[in-house]
Structures are given as structure tokens and as C-alpha cells.
């Protein structure tokens, strides 16, 4: 049993908000009704919280050790911040990396200011609901800064990235005060645009000043070009996709001497279901270079890229494979 405790399963990013099952579309319906003026924001909130509770219940029932709130309220990676931050608005739609999923590009209209409580309410709801540890999440400063459509406040990508990092540090401080002990920073831009890795590290020094453990989550692209560099980031955890594309990362994990690695071992962007054996083999390979107490396993990115029923099956494979890899009978 101790070994099971030492290697943990987790999830990153958003969980499917609706399902194809009867009764699984309440949030979709509530948003339509809000648009038509049939319900108010309070009634929508109640539905968001109900869907959040069922996402948490499902993650816990699947056996995920460290969960999140499923980001049920998030329209995209930036929407909570672009809605609440002073100086930022939501601009035109654009494709989110290589997904047939779209986001509103942030528009920076003036200096960014935040009270740092953007995510606090949702985090508190999740914590009150969950019986397992709940981590929080923010978008990555480089991802925000590189996907900004227009910036009328800062003169360069460098200035913009650091200004966003300062605002995110305020959010992380707020989450820490609300009891969060681990915050995911979702940063696909770092592996999409590895040339900015030094700028990113400077930004993460600002995030780290909030005094809460951070998990740098990279996804969508291999981290091969900057893998060793990531070991120098001021974060407690580094997340890497070792499943969905060809990568040499699994052979180079010994670059990380003190950080916990969060390995994406089931593909969250393809419905093809991995076998328990193939996922366990990935984990066993990682365990040769990383001790179990510094290894967490997860889907490669947010499960919202999959239909709900497939997302559930992926969680089951993740948990079964992680148990098999550390020798616990299923």
C-alpha cells in the first residue's frame, strides 16, 4: 500500500462539461437559457456548481489521487482572467494550437490589475466538495502573452509576459490564502515556442514569489528541445507529455533531481483507448530513472478534448495501469 501512496495519479486542465448521456447536458441548456434571458446569473452558478460537484465525484470515484475542479466555468484557458482583470478584454476567436477548439484572444487595453481573487470562489467550492486533495490551476504567462491579439499597454513580449506573470502571481497568492498548496500553471506555449524558455523562467520567478508550490504543465508538443532547461525552473513539479507524440523525454528524466514529474501517459486528444499494459510499460520505463515518490501520472492534457464517456475510460486505464506498474493487484 505504501507504494500506491508514493506514486500518484492526477488530472490537468478541463474535464468535459457535458455528456451524451440523458441528463448530461444541463450546463449547455442553462447557458442557452441565460442567453435567452430565461434564467439569471445566480441560477447559472447553481448549475456550474452542480456540474463541478459531479466532475469531482467522478474523478474521485475513478481513483484519481490529486484532483482539480474540472474548470467547468472556463470557456477557454484565459476566460476567467480576461473577464475579471482590469485592463484586459476578450477579443476575436482563434484556434487553440492544433485543436479544433477555439478561444477568445486576450486584448490588453491598459495596465493589468487584479485583486487576486478570480478563482478563489470556485476553488473553495471544490475543496468543500472534495474528499481528496484539490489543486488549483492558472494559465501560463507565456501562453497568455503569446496568444494576445492586441497589446496597448506593454511595449514588448518580454514586458507583457512579466506583467501577466505579476497578475498571475496575485491570483496564486489568493489561491494560497484560500488553502491551495499546489497550483498547475498550464503552459503549452513553452513547448510550442521553446525559444522563449529564458523569458519564461524569469516569469516563473515572479509566480514563485507567491510562495505556493507550482506545477509547470507543458502539453500538445514534445518538450525535447528544452527538457534539461526545465529542471532549472522554480517549480515543484514539471508536467510532460510522453505519450501522444514521438519524444526522447522518457530516456532523459534523470535530468530532474528534485522535482516531481507529472507524466502524460494516456492520450487526452485521441479516443483510441490505450491498454493497461502499454501505459504500465511507459510508467515502468519512467520508474527506472525517477523514484516513485517523485512520479505522478496523468492524461496528456485536459480531458475536455474527448467526449465524456471516453474521458471516463481514459481515467480508468490511467488508474489501473499506475496500480499495475507499482505491483498492486487490480
Amino acid at each position: 500500500m505504501r507504494e500506491v501512496r508514493s506514486m500518484k495519479t492526477t488530472v490537468i486542465g478541463a474535464f468535459p462539461k457535458i455528456s451524451d448521456e440523458p441528463g448530461g447536458q444541463e450546463l449547455r441548456r442553462a447557458l442557452h437559457r441565460l442567453d435567452r434571458g430565461e434564467i439569471d446569473a445566480g441560477a447559472l452558478d447553481a448549475v456550474v456548481e452542480q456540474v463541478t460537484r459531479s466532475a469531482i465525484a467522478e474523478l474521485e470515484a475513478a481513483g484519481i489521487d490529486v484532483i482539480n475542479d474540472g474548470q467547468i466555468r472556463w470557456d477557454d484557458a484565459f476566460s476567467p482572467f480576461a473577464r475579471s482583470w482590469e485592463g484586459v478584454s476578450r477579443g476575436p476567436l482563434e484556434r487553440f494550437y492544433d485543436n479544433n477548439t477555439y478561444f477568445r484572444q486576450p486584448v490588453i487595453e491598459g495596465p493589468i490589475r487584479t485583486g487576486g481573487r478570480t478563482l478563489v470562489h470556485d476553488y473553495e467550492v471544490a475543496r468543500a466538495t472534495a474528499s481528496r486533495p484539490v489543486k488549483a490551476a492558472v494559465c501560463g504567462p507565456l501562453t497568455f502573452a503569446t496568444l494576445t491579439a492586441e497589446d496597448r499597454a506593454y511595449g514588448s513580449l518580454e514586458e507583457r509576459t512579466l506583467a501577466v506573470a505579476d497578475a498571475l502571481a496575485d491570483e496564486i497568492r489568493g489561491l494560497g490564502a484560500a488553502g491551495a498548496t499546489l497550483v498547475d500553471v498550464e503552459e503549452p506555449a513553452l513547448v510550442a515556442l521553446p525559444q522563449h524558455v529564458e523569458l519564461a523562467r524569469e516569469a516563473y520567478l515572479r509566480l514563485a514569489s507567491a510562495g505556493v508550490d507550482l506545477a509547470l504543465q507543458t502539453y500538445f508538443f514534445p518538450a525535447d528541445r528544452i527538457l534539461e532547461f526545465l529542471a532549472s525552473f522554480p517549480v515543484a513539479q514539471v508536467g510532460i507529455d510522453v505519450r501522444s507524440r514521438d519524444t526522447t523525454a522518457l530516456r532523459r528524466l534523470d535530468a530532474f533531481r528534485d522535482k516531481t514529474l507529472v507524466l502524460g501517459v494516456v492520450d487526452a486528444r485521441n479516443t483510441r483507448l490505450e491498454s493497461k499494459a502499454e501505459v504500465a510499460a511507459l510508467i515502468e520505463q519512467a520508474l527506472k530513472l525517477v523514484p516513485a515518490e517523485r512520479l505522478w501520472v496523468a492524461p496528456t492534457t485536459g480531458l475536455e478534448y474527448l467526449p465524456h464517456d471516453v474521458a471516463s475510460k481514459k481515467l480508468a486505464v490511467l488508474v489501473e495501469a499506475s496500480r499495475a506498474a507499482v505491483g498492486v493487484p487490480a
Partner: peptide
């Protein structure tokens, strides 16, 4: 396939 979100609602 099942339902997947493209953007917003």
C-alpha cells in the same frame, strides 16, 4: 463520436 466542445457553448 460523442460530443466535444468547439468553443463557448
Amino acid at each position: 463520436g460523442g460530443l466535444v466542445r468547439s468553443y463557448g457553448n
